[in-house]
Design a protein around this nucleic acid. Structure first.
Lengths: 327, 327
DNA sequence: CTGTTAGCGCATTCAG
DNA sequence: CTGAATGCGCTAACAG
């Protein structure tokens, strides 16, 4: 078992027969420094030969900024879509030399400050809002950018708000486009989902002819059946569900009542989870191009870190309806 | 806009009228140092008054170790269950003063070294295996613990291998317990899921009377129907599915053939996703106690970081069958 | 041009 | 309870 010691830039310098400064200049390709190709190669070779890995801690300490982008996850269960978004975001940021990490778990477990203090990120993304104090503290500590994706609007551009609204619009448009005049909205049971549900519902409101009949639908066939029963009694013929799971619940509820979609009740979900196409009947739903969304988010982060202004999101093509049989 | 400067321990020391060393001793409650309560209070008060947050980078640089636990996520879509596990893990580690972060995205985007170099974690968890070189490099860089959760066995204790096998066992046991003699295994379409699927299948093999008939089942009703058709022709009456989604596909395939579960074909899934109870018929499935599993993983990490030996996982109660109607 | 010296950033910790 | 050294990389100022 070899004695494992950390390899530092001093080791590389020694091996290459140069100073540590030179090593730094070569490895960072510092502009405005002219180093002879021969020296350069020697340094490069020494570095890779030794397997040199600069200490992120030292670099962060010195520059006051790491290349890590931290995403604070909400404490509700993250589904496929969010997972997908995170993966795409990670890929997109990697292309910019940034390391993406996500912190799951509620803010109650660990005060949010503990987390960014431990990471010293270049940017922090959050689905929910920060308090003013939190934002200030982070910026004081050198965090370049703080972005809230959803929540009450403030000085932040709520980057995810628009796509969510658009999602609702598309649902309502599809239903009204297929002749449904009286819509219902199947709201999720879990209060933590409000920050997603509210903008979606707002989108439905904006696109629907009249005010949709909102009803909370638990992920349970029996409970869902009573919601469906009432909707039908009120003459509602089309349901926009918060997501595919809620849509599946609506479908299950309808089935219990002997109703079939889309004839007795049209249902449209959100997300296009795998179970959607396997449902009875296959679920019509709305999907978001997570890759494009992630690319935009990445651009926003990079722009802000380097002081440039971020481009606007062109949301139009981001969201589209997947037509199957339920609506 | 106030000029925001980072508050350092020197600021606290100045305000409290003591040296930086004293500040450090007080704030870290360093054992073997006797500091008078009066001084202690002055330091504490100064620190909170100024909103002092120790620089993680400096601390990491000095101690050579951060309090961050990094989890490398696989590049396949992470579902609810993994998300759940991560959340629980985060909570469990937070109780130990450790910060949990996850890095999504494939290793191709960013060489794995880039990632831990940017974080300097105390421990690294991964679902897949590391190469020997990677492990060595990490340990050389001061990473205390490297754990692979699944993959080819080596010097690591593959912590997740056992629960996965147990999952398969429970599926097979339930089916044989309800009179099924000839079992099929519905293998996932996505090759990236092998590391999960193989231990589960091994569990089924171990618990089933004979060798199950393995068939790949895509998440598509038509394709699933042909698989089901062949199973039935071979006299298979019970299907263990890789997970609930695959089980849903089997159910959809059976429905296309005019077969109904569980009479013509019993199906059991894994995960108990929300869609499972909403399926037609409601899906019998196997769940893992993610909280308990996360607690064990957290204990393992903490033990290893502090040099103690980790307890063995008592997996018996971890996995249980949720009986509904499909099997 | 090419490369070096020196000091900084911040918390920890040993010897006083 | 304090002074001073330490961990590692960056970079302005400077010498050959």
């Amino acid at each position: 078992m070899p004695e494992l010691r950390r390899i530092t830039s001093a080791d590389v310098a020694r091996r290459a027969g140069v100073s540590r400064a030179t090593v730094s200049y070569v490895l960072n390709a510092t502009p405005g420094q002219s180093i002879s190709p021969a020296t350069r190669d020697r340094v490069l070779e020494a570095a890779s030969g030794l397997g040199y890995a600069p200490s992120a801690a030292a670099r962060t300490l010195r520059t006051g900024r790491s290349d890590v982008v931290l995403c604070l996850l909400p404490d509700w269960p993250i589904g496929n879509e969010v997972g997908n978004l995170l993966g795409n975001l990670s890929t997109a940021l990697a292309r910019e030399g940034l390391t993406f990490v996500a912190h799951p778990g509620s803010r109650e477990d660990r005060p949010i400050a503990e987390i960014w203090k431990a990471i010293t990120p270049a940017a922090v993304l959050s689905f929910t809002d920060f308090s003013d104090g939190e934002t200030e503290a982070m910026q004081a500590a050198g965090v370049a950018l703080v972005v809230a994706l959803l929540g009450r609007a403030g000085r932040h551009a709520l980057e995810l708000e628009l796509p969510q609204q658009l999602t609702g619009r598309r649902q309502a448009e599809h239903l009204t486009g297929t002749g449904h005049r009286s819509l219902g909205y199947a709201y999720p049971d879990d209060p933590r989902l409000r920050i997603f549900a509210d903008p979606r519902l707002a989108g439905v409101r904006a696109a629907a002819g009249g005010e949709p009949v909102v009803r909370t639908v638990p992920l349970d066939p029996v409970a869902a059946a009573v919601a469906v029963d009432r909707w039908c009694a009120e003459g509602v013929t089309g349901i926009c569900a918060y997501n595919d799971e809620v849509a599946l619940a609506v479908l299950a509820g309808a089935r219990r009542l002997g109703l079939t979609a889309p004839r007795d009740l049209a249902v449209i979900g959100v997300d296009d989870i795998p179970a959607a196409r396997l449902a009875v009947p296959p679920l019509t739903t709305v999907t978001t191009d997570q890759g494009a969304l992630a690319a935009h988010l990445a651009t926003t982060v990079v722009a802000a870190i380097s002081g440039r202004s971020a481009p606007l999101l062109s949301a139009a093509d981001l969201v589209r309806v997947v037509i199957r049989e339920s609506a």
